[in-house]
Nucleic acid binder design. Structure first.
Lengths: 143, 143
DNA sequence: ACCTTAATTGGATTGATTCCGTTTTGTAAA
DNA sequence: TTTACAAAACGGAATCAATCCAATTAAGGT
C-alpha cells in the first residue's frame, strides 16, 4: 500500500482529505516502524505547531479501522505502524527500543486444529520482541 | 504451584509474610483467571476495607517478578493470573470478557528456526482471544 | 460564493498506574 | 518477651496516556 491508496481508502469511506491526515500518513509511511501517539504528535508539530492530541488519536483510530495502520502495545503504550503487506496475514519481530519490525510469514493459528470447544475465537496475537542490531549496545536507539 | 509453594517463594527471596499477601494469592488461586488490579483491590477490600492501590500494585509486581503470577494486557488494562503450570512453557486462549483461559500446549517459537539476523530476541507473545461459552450471548459474564 | 457537516483546537477530564512521606507491622536479635 | 530495624501498607497526591467536549475552522458539494 502506498500513500495514494491510503488516501483513496479515506475518500471511499467518506472521510475528508486534510493536509494533517496526509502528513500523518506520510510519517507512518516514511518511518515504517511502530510509533506512539506522542511520537506522531511530536513529528507533526514540526509542521503544525498547534496540533492537538485529539487529532492524532482520532485519525489513528480511523486509520486503524480502515486497515491503514496496524497497532500493538508494549511498555504500557499503544503503538502503530503503516500496515505493511495488507494482502497477506503476517506477524512481526519487533524491536522494543525503536519499533522497527521484521515480518514473520508463519502464523501459529495454522497449527490450531479446528475451533476449540466452548470458545468463540475473535482474534489472536503473535509477536516476537527483541533488540535490533541498530539499537544493540549502549548507544541511543537510532530513530 | 499451590499457595504454600508461593508463600515459600516469597520467603526464599526475603519478602515478608503478610496476611494481605496471603489473601491476594488466595484470590488469584481461587479465581484462576486474569484479573485487573481494580478487580483484585475490590475483592481484597471485602476483608481489608482500607487497602490501598499501592499495596495491590506493589505485590502484583513482586509476584510477577517471582513468577507467581503471569500478566498480559487487553482493552488498555493490565491483567494477571496465577501462574499455572510453571514448569511447562505454554500459551493461552483468553476470554476477553471474564479473563478465563485455556492452555495451549504448542509454542510457535518452535517453528522459528535459529536466531533471526540482526535481532536479539528477548521475548515473545502468543495469545488467542475469544469469548467463552459462559460469556456468550447477552447475559452478563459469569465471574 | 454559500452551506452543511466533518475536522480540529485546546482545555478539561478520566482512569490506570506510580510516587512519596508517614504509620504500621513482620521478623530477627537481644 | 521486648526491642530495633527494615519492609509493608496507608492515603493522598502526582503522572501520564487516552478520551471527551464546546467552540472554531475548513472541506467539499450545491
Amino acid at each position: 500500500m502506498d500513500l495514494k491508496q491510503a488516501l483513496d481508502l479515506l475518500k471511499k469511506h467518506g472521510y475528508k482529505y486534510t493536509n494533517k491526515r496526509e502528513l500523518m500518513m506520510d510519517i507512518f509511511l516514511r518511518e515504517s516502524r511502530y510509533l506512539s501517539a506522542r511520537e506522531v504528535l511530536d513529528q507533526m508539530q514540526e509542521d503544525f505547531p498547534g496540533l492537538s492530541f485529539d487529532t492524532v488519536y482520532r485519525n489513528i483510530s480511523i486509520f486503524e479501522k480502515l486497515g491503514i495502520v496496524e497497532g500493538t502495545e508494549w511498555d504500557g503504550e499503544r503503538r502503530y505502524r503503516f500496515h505493511c503487506n495488507r494482502d497477506t496475514h503476517h506477524h512481526h519481530i519487533i524491536c522494543t527500543k525503536c519499533g522497527r519490525t521484521r515480518e514473520i510469514r508463519v502464523c501459529p493459528m495454522n497449527a490450531i486444529l479446528g475451533e476449540p470447544d466452548n470458545f468463540e475465537i475473535t482474534g489472536h496475537k503473535f509477536e516476537i520482541y527483541g533488540i535490533c542490531a541498530d539499537c544493540e549496545g549502549d548507544h541511543a536507539p537510532r530513530h
